[in-house]
């Protein structure tokens, strides 16, 4: 089914379930990675991810295309994550799980073990660096990279002002550069 995100969401609001399928296909990967890299626990991430989409389904009647659908979707995601953190008083996550997960053997081993090892090492460093960011900076970075939101849209999705969103992004990028340069 073709059309912009907003058109698809309006079509779904009007009762066309196929529009939701198209919308879901477009956003499922980025949203899932955003959630997984925010909470760092796969089972929990799946639960939160499902909750976010359930909220989208429930909120379809109130949807108004005043902003991009992506901004609306990630606003819901942000609110769900904030709920989770407040409920469990979790504002920081450990790096151990990410390292362990990244070091798990993949199902499809490459033919070039040396090169694959280097690539995996580089990816692991970046993943560690992203995971080591403060939650607000990590969220801003993930919204930029996964959702493709602008600074203004990040501010809207997270309930911050634009200056704060811009500052979080700058700090996040500075720390990632520093980490990668140190280990290069």
């Amino acid at each position: 089914m073709e059309g912009s995100d907003e058109q698809l969401m309006l079509a779904y609001r009007g009762g066309q379930a196929a529009a939701f399928e198209a919308l879901y296909a477009r956003h499922k990967g980025a949203l899932f990675r955003f959630v997984v890299r925010s909470v760092r626990e796969r089972a929990l991430a799946e639960e939160l991810y499902q909750d976010i989409w359930m909220r989208v389904i429930e909120a379809r009647e109130r949807y108004q295309p005043q902003a991009r659908f992506t901004t609306w979707l990630y606003t819901i995601a942000h609110n769900r994550l904030v709920d989770h953190w407040r409920r469990h008083d979790l504002h920081a996550v450990s790096l151990d799980d990410e390292e362990a997960r990244l070091e798990e053997p993949r199902g499809n081993p490459g033919h070039e073990p040396q090169r694959q090892a280097e690539a995996r090492e580089g990816l692991a460093r970046l993943a560690q660096a992203v995971a080591a960011l403060p939650p607000a900076q990590r969220e801003a970075f993930l919204l930029r990279e996964e959702a493709g939101l602008s600074v203004a849209e990040i501010a809207a999705a997270t309930g911050a002002n634009e200056e704060a969103a811009k500052s979080r992004l700058r700090y996040a990028l500075a720390k990632l550069r520093e980490t990668l340069d140190d280990r290069a």
């Binding site: 779904y12 009762g15 066309q16 379930a17 939701f20 399928e21 879901y24 499922k28 990967g29 899932f32 990675r33 997984v36 799946e46 991810y49 499902q50 989409w53 359930m54 389904i57 429930e58 379809r60 690539a119 580089g122 990816l123 970046l126 993943a127 990279e145």
Partner: peptide, 24 residues
């Protein structure tokens, strides 16, 4: 972007889409 492009499990996709169909 070179990081692992994780995707939700297929069962989760089906559950969400099924819920979306059921809602409408």
């Amino acid at each position: 972007r070179a990081l692992d492009r994780e995707e939700p499990p297929r069962a989760l996709d089906e559950a969400i889409i099924s819920a979306a169909h059921g809602a409408v």
